[in-house]
């Protein structure tokens, strides 16, 4: 104690502040190493091995990239599931963003019964969980009521080229489900909208700008940061959702005799890679857009 006290004055204030700061985040850094970095590295290690688990031990035999090539070139389901996931994500993200933006702009207005509508619109925050969504989908409560089975719609779908049909079909059958993923996004948009000084709208209106112009020239640019945040949030939530087909497949493979932990780990890394690429594409696209707006 005395020893520490004696050289304390020699440490500059700057270093002391940094040390105290590290003190606050130390537990998180340790946690990151233990519960994120280490398991991630181990999962990667499993993914290049054939893993057999017995009651007493875990046996590894190195197989290089065999699990990865099997997933991408031999597995009859996985690539198809990945393509489906990519299409669903790329369809869902713009819908969630646009929808959340519209609702946030509504909630930013002043009108009667606003409180009631606000309570209803934020319901998804509490209810969106795997088993509940699964039960609702199974009972047909998640699709836009009846639209996908209307004869005219079915005929229209048959006319479409295959590449377009899957996204449109997905859109029709899961429209409500997609909307259920927009709770937090509305909150984020709303907070950005409330930051915009109301006098800017007034000034623009006095200068003769229409609501349409105000939306494109003032509101939308002020939402660009929130849009990037929301896009990332949406992609991550959809990709982590426990009823996601790819995740279910990976989970099943973990306990499968044919698959096993090594194979499931490889699948997990490929999935992670695809997710990062998707995030990257959407992020770059939105950044480009935000820059043009600014």
């Amino acid at each position: 104690m005395t020893g520490r006290g004696s050289f304390r004055p020699e440490i500059s204030l700057r270093v002391r502040e940094a040390l105290h700061g590290y003190g606050f985040i130390l537990i998180w850094v340790l946690g990151f190493a233990l519960f994120t970095a280490l398991p991630l590295a181990q999962t990667f290690h499993y993914s290049v091995n054939q893993v057999t688990v017995t009651a007493a031990s875990i046996n590894l035999s190195f197989v290089e990239w065999a699990n990865y090539t099997r997933a991408l070139f031999t597995d009859p389901n996985f690539v198809e599931l990945l393509v489906g996931y990519t299409i669903e994500t790329l369809v869902s993200v713009p819908i969630v963003l646009i929808f959340a933006m519209i609702i946030a702009m509504f909630l930013n207005l002043k009108f009667r019964l606003k409180g009631v509508f606000r309570v209803i619109f934020f319901l998804p925050i509490v209810i969106t969980s795997g088993p509940v969504i699964k039960e609702l989908t199974a009972q047909g409560a998640a699709s836009a009521p009846g639209i996908a089975s209307l004869p005219a719609v079915v005929e229209f779908l048959e006319q479409l080229p295959r590449a377009l049909r899957t996204p449109v079909e997905y859109l029709l059958t899961s429209f409500i489900l997609i909307l259920w993923f927009s709770g937090v996004q509305i909150l984020i948009y709303l907070s950005s909208l409330q930051k915009v000084d109301r006098s800017i709208y007034e000034a623009a209106a006095i200068d003769g700008a229409s609501s349409w112009e105000i939306f494109w020239k003032i509101i939308l640019p002020s939402l660009s940061t929130a849009t990037v945040v929301n896009a990332v949030y949406t992609i991550v939530t959809l990709s982590h959702f426990s009823e996601n087909k790819v995740i279910r497949y990976i989970y099943d493979q973990t306990y499968d005799v044919q698959g096993g932990i090594g194979y499931a780990s490889a699948l997990a890394f490929i999935y992670f890679g695809v997710m990062i690429i998707l995030l990257g594409i959407v992020y770059l696209f939105l950044m480009q857009w935000a820059k043009r707006k600014a």
Binding site: E17, A18, L19, G21, Y22, I25, W28, V29, F32, F35, T36, L38, P39, L40, Q42, T43, Y46, V232, V236, S239, H240, I247, I250, Y251, T254, I261, A264, S265, A268, F269, Y271, F272, M275, I276, L279
Partner: peptide, 25 residues
């Protein structure tokens, strides 16, 4: 303190990394 951007990057990583990439070990 030094390394704050790194901490934020790692925070983002913990949010993005899918649970199935860390859950088995």
């Amino acid at each position: 303190f030094w390394g704050k951007p790194l901490i934020f990057a790692l925070l983002l990583a913990t949010f993005i990394i899918p649970p199935q990439n860390t859950v088995i070990p």
